[in-house]
Amino acid sequence: MRQTGYKNIGITIYILLLLTPVYWLLNMSFKTNREILGGLTLWPQNFTFDNYAVIFTDPSWYNGYLNSMAYVSINVVITLLVALPAAYAFSRYKFLGDKHLFFWLLSNRMAPPAVFLLPFFQLYSSIGLFDTHIAVALAHCLFNVPLAVWILEGFMKGVPREYDEMAYIDGYSFPKFFIKVFLPMIRSGIGVTAFFAFMFSWVELLLARTLTSVDAQPIGAIMTRTIGASGIDWGVLAAAGVLTIIPGLLVIWFVRNHVAKGFALGRV
């Protein structure tokens, strides 16, 4: 069992190294600016919640979190609604242009967001959606929908078609079969897809920042405000950073049992 011992030591070291930068951010968020810039301290000497108080008492700060969560939630819902039937079609049927369509979808996951910045701005401005949550949610569909179709298709391929046929013999209509029989069977696939959609939408900033100005501004864009005339307010910046990690932690906690399976995108 010495082998396991080495492995445990190895993974412990890796995780410690992984968490050190995060600890440094956490450490900083409890310090005053004077202490941060005054020199290196391994833990806060004058422990303070002031940095967090700034964020929780100022609407222009905490609205950033609400905005981010709003467009991420809308995006996850839209992504799942359109990707589920499409993934079913790809997993079950051969149809005109299916392979080309699939690659074309994936190719949008590959489009560098920098390419689309300006056209997106113009498109959403021209239809009056600029600076709304729905605009960011729709823009994020560009990379989330193809990925969702890809992941879900893998899971759906794992369900034998005999289930579909049996349901039809039992007199189920397609919508009834799809919702009552099929979706429960790929529950974990849906959970994982939702997690991925959440993750990629939550961490993206380039498009979100370009498509908003005031009303739907994401937290990432608001964080740049800490850079003021008197320099950077490091403490508040660190506190804001720590708070952006928490929603992700909650989501991964809820889907942890599905994640191992789903990270293979249902392909193994």
Partner: peptide, 25 residues
């Protein structure tokens, strides 16, 4: 499960925060 969650943490941090973390670190 614990390893899985801890290892996944960097993936869930918004990209500009990742930059900020390293800028200081």
């Amino acid at each position: 499960s614990l390893c899985l969650i801890l290892v996944a943490i960097p993936l869930l941090i918004p990209w500009n925060v990742v930059g900020t973390i390293w800028q200081i670190f």
